[in-house]
Amino acid sequence: MITQADLLILAGSGLAVGLLVLFLALMGFRRNGKLETEAEVIALIQAHEPGVMVGDIGRDRRGNAAGARLGDGRFAVVRAVADGFAVRLFTAAQVRSVALRRRAGTPVAIIRFSDVGFPALTIAFDRADFPPWVEALRHAARSA
């Protein structure tokens, strides 16, 4: 049974956590990861799986995410998480849905994965058209 003392300790711990996070933010530990170049995207994917061929890269215009098609037919996405990046290499079967939209002329892909630990990824591309890998992924995900 949870006592009043337990609740007080929890409340105090919660306050300490809040102050600690504020302290870290004020210390300047709040840099957001940003994908500046396609070379950076390739390097991150190849660090995840050495030797894999990466092509047809599509990058988010704000540098938050990127995707690519791999030489073996799989796909890869890279997303900024805090000051780093999370990389996923996947097949179409691991994707729940791919929605393609245009927002003010910008091609936007919303990719939903079946993994709860990798939430839906929105990529507003830094180009006029959708990169071919997104179209291929949507097609493959529909038929998977």
Binding site: L20, V21, M27, R30, A82
Partner: peptide
Amino acid sequence: YDAQDAAASL
């Protein structure tokens, strides 16, 4: 260190 990551851990 990263404040967001630390917040998640805490």
